[in-house]
Design a protein around this nucleic acid. Sequence first.
DNA 1: GTAGTTCGACTTTTT
DNA 2: GTCGAACTAC
Length: 810
Amino acid sequence: MPDPIKPVIVGSVRAGIGPAGARLDEDLLAGLNEPQREAVTYRGPALLIVAGAGSGKTSVLTRRIASLLRAREAWPSQILAITFTNKAAGEMRERVRGLIGDVAQGMWISTFHSACVRILRREAEQFGFTKNFTIYDSGDSRALIKRLVKEHEADAFGLTPASVQGRISKLKNELADAESFARSANLSDPAERVFAELFADYQRALQRANAFDFDDLIGQTVYLFRAFPHVADVYRRRFRHILVDEYQDTNHAQYALIHELTRPPGDGGTLLDETEPASLTVVGDSDQSIYAFRGADIRNITEFERDYPGAKVVLLEQNYRSTQTILDAANAVIGNNFDRKDKKLWTDVGLGDPIIGFTGYSQHDEAQFVADEVEALRRRGIPYSEMAVFYRTNSQSRALEEIFIRAAVPYKIMGGTKFYDRAEIKDALAYLIAVANPADELSVRRILNRPRRGIGDVTETAIARYAQEEGITFRDALANVSALGVGPKIQQAIAQLDAVLAEATAIMLPASGEVAAPTSVTAGLTVLLNKSGYLDALRRSKDPQDEARVENLDELVAVTREFARGNPEGTVLDFLTEVALVSDADDLDDASGTVSLMTMHTAKGLEYDAVFVTGVEEDLIPHRISAGEPGGPQEERRLFYVALTRARKKLHVSLAMTRAQFGEVSAAMPSRFLQEIPHALIDWRQSPGDVNSRGGMKSRALNGRPSTGSGTGAGGGWSGGSRYGDDLVPLPKRERPAGDLTKFANRIPAKVRDNGDLELAPGDRIRHDDFGEGRVDMVTGEGAKRVAHVRFDTAGPKKLLIKIAPISKL
DNA sequence: GTAGTTCGACTTTTT
DNA sequence: GTCGAACTAC
């Protein structure tokens, strides 16, 4: 990517507000309200735009950039705009281009991670890396850490790969490194000492592999800037206008990076250097901070004015996205978070439709409601592409998928990095990495015996030992098979692998002077997959899944072709970088349109005409794990708030009474957040109370297998009280006796049915509201998941969730 | 060294 | 209900 650093024209930067500039701005300001105009036109060292959900912040940001360029206050190359996702970056670039045309070329609009990769590729040689470094995604890191944990036998100290990885990541987000950790840690605790060693080893391994993990991309760039001020100055002079979106979700390392970039260049340097620090614009909404779990520090926004004295603050509170009903619900929910600046979104588009609520018996039942409703909306003219379904955890997507496939609703799952997580794709990428960055031992080890070449642990260790003795890389050791002292068959296999890698290297990384052909990545990958025998092995296999793997690899080859089309000069490294940093395949919404399924986190920054928020249950949202974390429940509430505010016109909230996870069914309760939405705003198609009523409510689940736990007519039961922590008020107690369960709209009954710890033993006779009398065969499970296996006199054998089934002991 | 089997743990969210 | 790791049998 040619991107020469253009000289900064000192002094001209601030001069743009002339009469011409003002005139030029008029069309950019069209349709903006007063605060929005101010946010576009304000000029000064620092600007904080507090932008509520749907307040048009993207519009403001893009117009701000456009006006800077239009008035010649800045060259495109002087602008650095940071967004949260690659997708958002692409959209912003498009919108700026739409405003002022191709002048926009040369701007850096990217994520923190992409921007840092660009910087690091240029500067890697400054500190012991080479510019063909590779990027470890979380899976790669985990694999490496797993090996280290094993080597150190760290599990004896209660250190799991996951916990080590999480801790290292947290530390890196705080800009701590292995040494600084070791200095401050309590090393008399053996577990701490082992962890410190792991951390140091991990970092050494990364360095040896010429690789950065996600957190390093940011952290090492900060380190680079601090250790080499002359390098930092290059970027400080270059970037005159820095804009950061979603500022509430920046972590300390990212904050430090921005801080480094907005220092005056040549700190205390030459006399003539009067370059001012870059101007900084940040946009954020503390109510939408949902990434504290990965180190986002809300203080970055709340203390912005302290960090940048004299900063201008602009508040955007008018919402242009949703109906008043949706906003009222969202405002009411978020209002339950204490410790927040009160901010009320408003709109002038009117009340709109009520929120639609639905309670299913099971997650399939719930999914069926969503599918039906999607179809109904479609018939009323809302395109699929304007509908989205949100859930808290990725695993919830499965039930939705199953029903959507059955109902022939076109959908796509956003965000899940599934494709690039598949084993065969990772293998193929490891082949590419082995060529692009031979120092990356992890990748070479990965492909060593893939396909099966008869190279096992023993041989692998032999190669590693040989490499160490000779002081060469693992990759280079492969070229010296005869010295390894392994059998001729294995020698032959290794030599073959070495030859294939060499051939691909010649294609993708031709000797200096020559330029690789645009198709080099495609050609190289094809060679690797074919001549390594990888594809052959899959084709020969009788495992039916391997057929799909071949197709996936074809798909990957197609991706390289697509990449070549978009980046004629792109190298293998560019390709690998893109793959590592682009999470979802950034599908452009195709014309036919599909419903989007995604987690609530992924939903941030997006908007749809119709939104389905599913699984609104306790232990899911707020997630059970969040209860133990400081600020957890509040963050969950913000997450729910983000989900609600994505909807323009139609908002649906739904839940299931029973949810299967771990293959076991257990009873679920409505989320406390539901209770926080004013009842009058929700029109319950089927409220948690209804689900218990005996009158004519049948399971809508298509699979209709009554054996999946509760049977068809399981009563809805939500136990109130007791389980509430956090800052909430317990659900109001219902006065009516259980049994009188006619619909009462817009109320979530606190206690519809709860058999509590009704004891049942084999042999007991029971009566079920629907199935009549029967005899208990056995009881399995525990607590809320206790299941009675009952043989009914007339209805036959059923499995029932004891806690909520409409049964009584005789 | 490999293939097949059983057992266990596991699911929070992402660049 | 799924994925991976450990174990066993060739």
